[in-house]
Nucleic acid binder design. Structure first.
Lengths: 325, 325
DNA sequence: ATGAAAGCGCTAACAG
DNA sequence: CTGTTAGCGCTTTCAT
């Protein structure tokens, strides 16, 4: 049985309410009494019972992060930073993996709602309407998606994609394939729009391929469509899909970047290590995780925070192949 | 304000305790009353307050996982599986990242102890003594380390390493470098012992290099020592360190596996994609995560569960180079 | 500055 | 089978 306020009270000869105050309202208690209480608490190894505290204050000291897939390399840095920030501010962090299933997202939020002071929704797939409805039950901060009326941490994928398109155009590419991930991905829609605009600006064409699951398999599955289009460069929804594209290209004997240039999004660990090393739009996932927690804890107003991205050029992109009948 | 038992009681015309029983002791209540209560609850969107329930039952419905580094690719699959298993059994999962710092481990356990029904310690660095002491405060299951008196989920790294040594010996290697990670790593000690035994058996030598941090940087830092030893093959503590070794080799112009064979441990995503693709000891991290949660929830006896590993041979290992003065 | 008492939402004897 | 009561550990009025 853990040591409670009552034990500390007994040990220090004061009433429980005084002990309580010694912890959560220091200024309301005589400095010397407080010192005595704290000493006793320390001696006994007292740890406040968070559940009990939550019951009476309605603040739990917990936060949660809901992600689509912990194993997708985009998320671990986000989770790590979020948990770091949470801990630095004396909060614990729940984690929920929805396995890319929309229904699970809603359930995760609802079931966590009562146990947290706020939730970070990372790249949710639910409808805006549902997200807003859920926001009525628990403070929400959304990452990688803009939902009006809620604080959102956005990354400038659009800018990154635009830079990628510009670069590819400069390398002589005229037909780009945009390999998209989940249809419900806000980031994906953003990327598509930016790609379209940049394409017009640079006088190149971009063809949509997909949607496909945002995994290696999804990327590999998209390969034939990309090749069929006669595209000389592919912009993948994320690094994982780009990796799948790379693998399929290798299998089909299509040299990268010789005949096909490939660009990913995320800049995950693997992007650096795969061969050819992947050119990719670096997303500040860690920064986003930290920021999301910060916004939650500050009870931030519903404003968008946009973080920068950059194009990291490696070896999977190169000059367009000479046209050859 | 969330809807409470009281609201449901009022709406269905029974006492709160009946409502409570309708949820947590179905057999103690008339089927028809129960149906009515459930209907009312559903109608109102009632969700039990876990904190309140925890206060009176002393069961929180929460578990926690303490890991050294979420961003280390070994952990995400473990976390994912653990959270999946937890959710399947109606539990929520806290996550704590200790950033490889021992002191943080203890604090994480203590501060989470009151809020969970049990904790998974994944590859902890604390002393056995401390772990046992903490186990008195909260049920613990340890992964990747044997602690007597506690349920442990182990992976047969020893076997994997032995197979790797055997294979390298068969390829003609005579001097192997064992590049170790954190000194406090149980897995690392296990690997070292197994490497030693296998080396004797096959008549080869193994030289210890390290300890180094279990990161790419750590691996890279070990490279010169490995080269200085005249070893023709390196067994790294994990994939991350193996990747560092690979990068350093590339930088120094040492061909892999031409002049140096490299073996990792984990079989992370990156191991498959790096070039040369990494030969590695595959660790069943997901299985371990799931098993750990299962043991926790079953209140398992302090027995060891050992999961198998296998050697995945890819392109970073090959025949030993011909001796040349 | 401290004590007393009520109450957060729920469960668990105990009656009936 | 259901209502009553007490209490989980803590905070928070309200007195004093």
């Amino acid at each position: 049985m853990a040591v409670t306020l009552k034990d500390v009270a007994r040990a220090s000869g004061v009433h429980v309410s005084t002990v309580s105050r010694a912890f959560s309202a220091a200024h309301l208690v005589n400095a010397r009494t407080r010192a005595r209480v704290l000493a006793a608490a320390d001696e006994l190894g007292y740890r406040p019972n968070r559940a009990a505290r939550a019951l009476s204050t309605r603040r739990t000291g917990n936060l949660g992060v809901v992600v689509a897939d912990i194993a997708n390399p985009f998320f671990p840095p986000l989770l790590k930073a979020a948990q770091e920030e949470a801990r630095a501010r004396d909060h614990h962090l729940f984690i929920a993996d929805t396995d890319e299933r929309t229904a699970v997202e809603e359930e995760a939020v609802r079931s966590l709602a009562g146990q947290v002071d706020g939730l970070v929704l990372a790249a949710p797939r639910m409808s805006d309407r549902l997200i807003r409805e859920l926001a009525a039950e628990v403070p929400l901060v959304v990452v990688n998606r803009r939902v009006r009326g809620l604080p959102c941490v956005l990354m400038d994928v659009g800018g990154g994609i635009a830079r990628a398109v510009a670069r590819l155009a400069a390398l002589g590419h005229r037909d780009l394939a945009l390999v998209s991930g989940p249809a419900a991905s806000w980031t994906g829609r953003r990327a598509a729009r930016a790609a379209g605009a940049a394409a017009r600006e640079h006088g190149v064409r971009v063809h949509r391929v997909g949607p496909h699951p945002p995994t290696e398999e999804g990327g590999a599955a998209a390969f034939d469509a990309v090749a069929g289009l006669g595209a000389t460069a592919a912009l993948a929804h994320n690094d994982l899909m780009a990796l799948g594209l790379l693998a399929a290209a290798r299998e089909r004997g299509v040299p990268v970047p010789g005949r096909l240039s490939v660009v990913g999004v995320d800049d995950s660990l693997t992007a650096r290590h795969t061969r050819p090393a992947l050119t990719t739009v670096a997303m500040p996932a860690g920064e986003a995780g930290r920021a999301a927690v910060d916004l939650l804890l500050r009870g931030a107003a519903p404003r968008d925070l946009v973080l920068g991205t950059r194009l990291v050029e490696r070896d999977s992109t190169g000059p367009a192949p000479r046209a050859q009948a």
